[in-house]
Design a protein around this nucleic acid. Structure first.
Lengths: 330, 330
DNA sequence: TTGTATGCGTTATCAT
DNA sequence: ATGATAACGCATACAA
């Protein structure tokens, strides 16, 4: 690997000059600049981003830590984030956040040490108090997707889970359903709670009985199992609200195996708008979650913070009902 | 951020000594070592991985570049690779390879500059000749997933696409099918060609007519559209071989929309063993592709190469038929 | 316009 | 056992 020194020798100039033409900072005579370019291409010289980072305390990079790679949701997130970052002339470095608060924090730390200019965290594990502290202590901007942190609203990209679940309930009610079951996410998940809460509150608002909740883990299989439990419990219901599309699909299959047709016998409403849901049989009525917009916004916000620009506060993103086949009127 | 200097001052020792206790290289009196530890924790000092990388020319990191984040396939890949790397005490840095040979190479370069100890590349774009050159020129090991490079077999983790497609064809034939259609990947994809070739060659072997191929892009929607084209062409067929599960699902839906039942009227065979395929209606008969094993092997091989250990040559991975509902006998 | 010198935070080679 | 000091490859303030 050729270094700046080699270029100096070949071009007959000093490191400062090479650095100048490289970063186009300061004035350089055209002839010497040309000589430098000559040397650079002759040696196939590439400045070491590492050394540069050490000297400038910044790379041209944004870090992203995600805590799981499951499902269409994360595919979209990563793709859009990567694309947006690239378009801004920066690079995106992705790390796995693992399955604990500690490992998420480790990933963040590692990224910070690598001198990324900002880190975007899709968190599932770190408690709000810790996040607050991180946002205060870290020398670079930290943007959070999927959670609100009090006092740092401009750095939080999140989704109105509660309102979306209300939408879901309202729709089901409008179709004449009155008895429900829920397949929701893990008990530990805040957002899972919010979705459930939004759903239940709406039922209460209409003087209906709240529904029992079965917990899954967002994988298709867990939806299948949860629905089987539900069926075994012999309770009466005409519609299921699932906390994501995967579990909705699992539930539909469980109903199918029990000889029940969706939506003729039971309606199922999903969440996420997984692209596959458009083509399943029956296709999935679901709540669209604008992941790509959220990823885009997260990166944009990061870029603004890096440039020390005015930070615009961000509204909670909200869901949209996608009406397809899996919900029918009673 | 506290640096090594601060530790020096507080502990009353030199940089060399701090470095010694940090890396446990060389002898240090217990008392002074303790003093250093004291200072370190008092200042919450973390050595800069960047500076360390500059000095040692190596980080404890493996780089992974993937060219797309679509589908369950990549989720598994990323998850398993990350997990395996972590278990080996290293970190995994992931970068998007984008959609061109150039961007893939850029990602590799960027990772190399960051002094990762090895890079694993899931390639879709870079031609073999370029890969060969990269493997020769790069100062660190480059492991390739999804393509064979002549002369570097120990560094290539790939899948016997051809044989898997043969399996698929044999199975369909064993069920009495004789007229087929294929929905395959993009024309540019080598593996897509291999799958198609394996399928066609098997038909030829049994003196059957080869089938026409429709190209998709591995997304569900493209399977849907391809199948509609197929249907519009009015050709006669009793089974469809799709190059991945997503497209198989899209095809099934297209058939459904055309009033055709799977598998009663038409059989559909997928590829990948997407976890969701177990729960679709009908569930998907498919070829399992051992992504996780491949990811695991890639990381393990990388680790061996980093340690300059003997490199064990790797056999081509092969697929396994998963029999479910979407294929029936004629 | 160009060069010198210093710093970035480590590791590593010498001495001592 | 420990301490100077030179690398590592670059940026940059200051001189010239």
């Amino acid at each position: 690997m050729a270094t700046i020194k080699d270029v100096c020798k070949l071009a007959g100039v000093s490191k400062a000059t090479v650095s100048r033409v490289l970063n186009s900072t300061g004035q350089v005579k055209k002839s010497t600049a040309d000589a430098v370019y000559q040397a650079i291409s002759a040696l196939d010289y590439k400045p070491s981003s590492l050394a540069r980072a050490l000297a400038t305390n910044s790379t041209n990079t944004i870090g992203l830590v995600v805590s799981a790679f499951e499902g269409a949701y994360f595919s979209s997130l990563l793709r859009k984030a990567s694309q947006t970052t690239l378009q801004a002339g920066k690079q995106l470095l992705i790390m796995d956040g693992g399955h604990s608060s500690a490992s998420e924090q480790l990933a963040i730390e590692s990224l910070v040490e690598r001198k990324v200019d900002a880190v975007i965290l899709y968190t599932r594990q770190i408690p709000e108090a810790v996040l607050k502290q991180l946002m205060n202590d870290l020398s670079i901007p930290l943007i959070i997707i999927n959670q609100q942190v009090e006092g740092f609203e401009e750095r939080c990209i999140s989704f109105n889970q509660y309102e979306a679940a209300q939408q879901a309930a309202e729709y089901l009610l409008s179709k004449g359903h009155k008895e429900f079951a829920c397949i929701t996410g893990p008990e530990s998940s805040i957002n899972s709670h919010l979705r459930l809460q939004g759903f239940q509150d709406t039922l209460i608002k209409y003087n209906l009985q709240t529904c029992t909740a079965y917990h899954g883990d967002y994988f298709t299989q867990s939806g299948y199992h949860a629905c089987n439990e539900l069926l075994a419990s012999k309770q009466s219901f005409t519609a299921i609200f699932a906390a994501n599309d995967n579990m909705a699909m699992g539930a539909i299959r469980a109903l199918h195996d029990a000889g029940l047709q969706v939506p003729q016998d039971i309606s199922v409403l999903g969440f996420d708008n997984d692209p596959a849901g458009e083509f399943t049989i029956p296709s999935l009525t679901t709540i669209m979650l604008p992941v790509e917009e959220m990823a885009y916004t997260a990166v944009k916000q990061a870029l603004q913070l890096i440039d020390k620009q005015e930070i615009s506060t961000i509204a909670l993103f909200s869901g949209n009902l996608i009406v397809r086949e899996s919900v029918d009127h009673l």
